[in-house]
Design a protein around this nucleic acid. Sequence first.
DNA 1: CGCAGGGTTGATCCTATTCAATTCGCGTGG
DNA 2: CCACGCGAATTGAATAGGATCAACCCTGCG
Lengths: 239, 239
Amino acid sequence: MADELIQKLARRDVLSAEERTWLASLVGPTKNYPAGTALVREHERLHESTLLVSGIAARYAVLRDGMRQITALHVAGDFIDLHSLLLKVMDHAIDALTDCTVVQVPHQKLVETTERFPHLSRVLWLDTVIDGATHRRWMTAMGRQDGAARLAHLLCELYLRLQQVGLASDEEFDLPLTQAVLGDVLGLSTVHVNRLIALLRRSGLISWSGRRVAILDWEGLADLAEFDPTYLRLQQEPV
Amino acid sequence: MADELIQKLARRDVLSAEERTWLASLVGPTKNYPAGTALVREHERLHESTLLVSGIAARYAVLRDGMRQITALHVAGDFIDLHSLLLKVMDHAIDALTDCTVVQVPHQKLVETTERFPHLSRVLWLDTVIDGATHRRWMTAMGRQDGAARLAHLLCELYLRLQQVGLASDEEFDLPLTQAVLGDVLGLSTVHVNRLIALLRRSGLISWSGRRVAILDWEGLADLAEFDPTYLRLQQEPV
DNA sequence: CGCAGGGTTGATCCTATTCAATTCGCGTGG
DNA sequence: CCACGCGAATTGAATAGGATCAACCCTGCG
């Protein structure tokens, strides 16, 4: 399971043999969380960070009236709470949206990593920075793009992120999320998400039956979404 | 001007004499940008990070139709582009909203900091992580809170942030931003921002004339906004 | 004095919400 | 194989929050 962590970071920058050995010594035991359970609760104080090995998890906040806003979706290969290393107290909760497998890395070992492996430290830092860039893109979508563009953008982003970890290809992927969850991501009602999916289907941009999503017209979808993948920083580059 | 950087980081955690000496050696010359000018352009490749010494700056994205979404507001004492150290290519632009004074720190020196001062490195990392937490809170507001709550939340946040750097006290502060800019922050039209300000005034929560904002009923404003300052991590705590 | 940028107000339109009902997909047990 | 149940998807009608367009007002300033 240490492979997961090494592969994850190696997608960002080249790692030395020494760094790989160190990383292999970091990971704790594998844990499983069934769909719908909490991985992390709000205001909790964490002592380890969690790497998602399989499944989909959501970071979210809940308001007084019960409304929920999902602020990040995570797939296999994502750190879901690396920021907790420095923030200490969680400002949001994390749920498993599907069955999830994770491995954990103690904070104390991450601190040690910053002491002894500055380059690895920067690669980890980069991970939280990409998180922030993704937040900004979602914010732009929520503030200034309509529902259709927002949904289209989410599909473009998820396709590329899943493709990167081998979970999507040929413009197709599994997306086992309910329309209510998508509403919580996009800041829309469930009913409206439904109508937007219907709209994208009618426009010939996608097909979507059950959990299977196919992008029929990538160009068109990306154009509608004004999708520019720069913020995902998918290329490997030295830090 | 090195004091600015030291004070900024010392608000997060205690710094040793050695660390302070090092930080003092990092900062470059002071620069001035008049209101309305660009500090950083989108897709630019930066080689230094910028610390805002005075003024207000905005990070934003512009869409095809010219619509703008401001994703972060920065005040004195904020790093406006520390993430560029790792992201290399900027995913957004930064403008001076008022006259701004800044100092710059070369990326190469920041990398050196991660090599030689792991604790400082973590304090810097923390800064980008708080940025992300703020992004998440704004997202929650944009997705699931109405205009009035969003505006109220922004005022609560800005008051605490300005207070921390001595620019606000007695529930009052200067906010030299146009209603159009506030619209770009909140994801609303200028006209609607105007009506929301009028609403908060009528409700007796604030007074706002010219650039002077006074919070008349902090409890009420924070309640409307569902404001919880945890995400700003205002307390000093070891990292 | 005239102008420009920002603030304020009104009328109308439209996107998305809410509430309510209906239908589909699918696993379970008889 | 069918009946049942349940969560999710789909559709319709009424409504609200906010956008847009268009004035008009104020104030600082050359």
